[in-house]
Design a protein around this nucleic acid. Structure first.
Length: 569
RNA sequence: GCGCCCGUAGCUCAACUGGAUAGAGCACCUGACUACGGAUCAGGAGGUUGGGGGUUCGAAUCCUCCCGGGCGCACCA
């Protein structure tokens, strides 16, 4: 897979500069990596000369100024500032190059021939989705789109929590206190009520736990019994609810496969582990010892009373996916609290001697906490995901009523803005960090927010709409008119690198930050450069193209993140 | 107790993975012309990067020891 990646945005300039420096100081081009100057005013690229000073037998500042004198790069001016060499791209070719590049539909894209699995969202059946599910859903969906844009064949997998002893408990509760009427009316709420009641009464009623175990064994038996029928009903009802949420986020899965989907592969999994010679018995349970892999806690694949566990199912899922997809990458967008589980998973497979285990990767993210403490479904410390969405949309609607009461499609736009705020807020932070859920902050529409991007996008659409003509062809415009937009062109030109880095680090935040810079520069641009009504056809044409390029770039980035792009708001 | 993650402006977060004077938003203060949308823009104030020590040309970033917070540590998922 050593095809050279396509050059987008500032890439062409970076490459030219690196080539020139490489031959000037006789250092392999791979070793020359450009950085960003401290201040944008210094230029677009910087090269710290410390690393090459020794070989050149010059002090870093001397080398920098020597290079500044010697280098002659077309359309690039270089200047030494102390030990740094700063490169500044000629304004005209910057504008021309970036606009041309960003107008391409595949801007920041690639055609990497890879198969990438992304497992994300994965809510539990019979429980409402809460804000804890938001991060995996939003991050997973964003990563999927990013890889897709880079040409990967992406398989989105929703690994529903639809199996396990909890369903024995739920069925036990259902048998005692369940109500068909309530179930039909508010399915998830009723199931949650049963779940909570089970845990309350379990302490005093020992027969509950006995029943729960019995029902789960019935479920696992594979027979077509009453327990299974009940479970199927719960699953279907839950999925209907989940799908409503996914539809609002604009997310589609390629495979909705719960843990139960791997049910008939579990025996084979245990057999396979036995054949690999990695299993042993411990207190009646079947385990895989991982001490040699540096993990003290063994992986438990079968309980003493013969039922399978989370680990068993995930092992089966991993193997099944390998056999089906022969993936290049298999990413698990799952909370950081499950780090040990994934280490164990990979370690077990490693002990079994499979090579593809290395292609599996846990993408952890910090958990969402409330100011009152950790989320707990049982203790009622939850915020339902739909509540967050609804409140945000409601607030967006209010805002529209205030700012733009004549807007057509108010409801649709309110939905787009409300969701955009939430999605962007989630993706703005580094994955790994815990976040404290704060209504005020999540529902903010000002400053570095989703609505800010949407607003900038809408302003562009507005100008283009008022122009009442098609966006001019590129070969028909005078780029010298756009020389003043340096900040904007640089911001747009840096998006492709942000996309590549976001993909490599599995960190959508990098795109979010790059987009904020584009929007900020864009707002400055149309403030300083009046587009319409200048009575200068040449000027208007070029600036229309500029606005269209800004609009297009924002739309691309927002699409990757999952932030809707209304044309008016 | 052991392992992993985190600690940066009053608050929420950045800082190109070792580079230049640590940057944004919120909140606070000041300002924006009958110009394409004020969900915007321009400016001000705000910092001993939790603390000590070390590595080197150079540290928020790397190593080490403390302090503080979070998560996890086999018959739940």
């Amino acid at each position: 897979m050593t095809t050279t990646p396509p050059l987008h945005g500032l890439d062409t300039f970076a490459l030219t500069i690196r080539q020139a420096v490489s031959s000037a100081i006789d250092v392999k081009i791979d070793l020359i990596s450009l950085e960003r100057p401290r201040q944008e005013s210094l230029g677009e690229f910087a090269l710290p000369c410390f690393r090459f000073a020794k070989q050149a037998k010059l002090a870093p500042p001397a080398l920098a100024s020597k290079l500044a004198d010697e280098l002659a790069i077309e359309n690039v001016n270089c200047e030494a500032v102390g030990p740094f060499l700063n490169f500044r791209i000629d304004a005209n070719s910057l504008a021309r190059s970036i606009v041309t590049s960003a107008q391409n539909d595949n801007y920041a894209g690639d055609n990497q021939d890879l198969t990438t699995l992304v497992e994300f969202s994965s809510p539990n059946i019979a429980k409402p989705m809460h804000i804890g599910h938001m991060r995996t859903t939003v991050i997973g969906a964003a990563l999927s789109r990013i890889y897709s844009h880079l040409g990967h064949d992406v398989k989105r997998i929703n690994h529903l929590g639809d199996w396990g002893s909890q369903f024995g408990k739920l069925v036990a509760a259902w048998q005692r206190w369940g109500s068909e009427d309530k179930l039909n009316e508010l399915p998830i709420a009723h199931l949650l009520e049963l779940y909570v009641r089970y845990h309350e009464e379990e302490k005093n009623d020992k027969t509950l736990a006995v029943d729960a175990k019995k029902y789960f064994q019935q479920l696992e038996s594979g027979e077509d019994n009453q327990t299974r029928a009940t479970w199927k009903q719960f699953t279907a009802l839950s999925l209907t609810e989940f799908d409503k949420v996914y539809a609002r986020f604009g997310i589609e899965f390629d495979y909705v496969r719960g843990e139960s989907w791997y049910e008939d592969q579990l025996d084979d999994m245990i057999t396979w582990l036995d054949e690999c010679g990695v299993t042993e018995l411990s207190d009646g349970a079947t385990i895989v010892n991982l001490e040699e892999q540096g993990i003290k806690t063994p992986s438990l694949v079968k309980t003493a009373h013969g039922t399978t566990l989370y680990a068993t199912r995930d092992l089966a899922a991993a193997k099944s996916r390998w056999e089906e997809f022969k993936f290049d990458h298999s990413l698990y967008v799952v909370g950081a609290e499950q780090t040990l589980h994934f280490q164990q998973l990979k370690a077990v497979l490693s002990r079994c001697g499979v090579e593809w285990e290395k292609r599996m990767e846990h993408i952890p993210f910090g958990l969402i906490r409330l100011t009152e403490g950790k989320l707990s479904t049982r203790e009622g410390r939850v915020i339902a995901l739909v509540d967050v969405l609804n409140r945000s949309v409601e607030l967006a609607a209010k805002s529209i009523e205030q700012k733009n009461p004549d807007l057509p499609n108010k409801e649709t736009v309110a939905e787009q803005v409300g969701l955009g705020a939430i999605v962007f807020h989630d993706l703005k932070h580094q994955r790994q960090k815990d976040v404290v859920f704060d209504w005020k902050e999540v529902l903010s529409f000002e400053g570095d927010t989703g609505p800010y991007l949407q607003y900038t996008h809408a302003r562009c659409c507005s100008i283009l709409r008022r122009a009442e003509k098609d966006v001019p062809q590129l070969d028909d415009i005078d780029f010298s008119v756009l020389e003043g937009g340096r900040e904007l062109w640089v911001a747009i030109g840096r998006l492709p690198q942000a996309v590549r880095e976001a993909a490599a680090k599995r960190e959508p935040m990098l795109i979010a930050n790059a987009l904020l810079k584009v929007a900020a520069a864009g707002n400055g641009f149309y403030r300083d450069n009046q587009v319409l009504g200048t009575n200068d056809d040449n000027l208007e044409k070029a600036r229309l193209v500029a606005i269209d390029t800004l609009r297009k770039t924002l739309a691309l980035g927002m699409k990757l993140l999952g932030v809707p792009t209304p044309q008016e708001m």
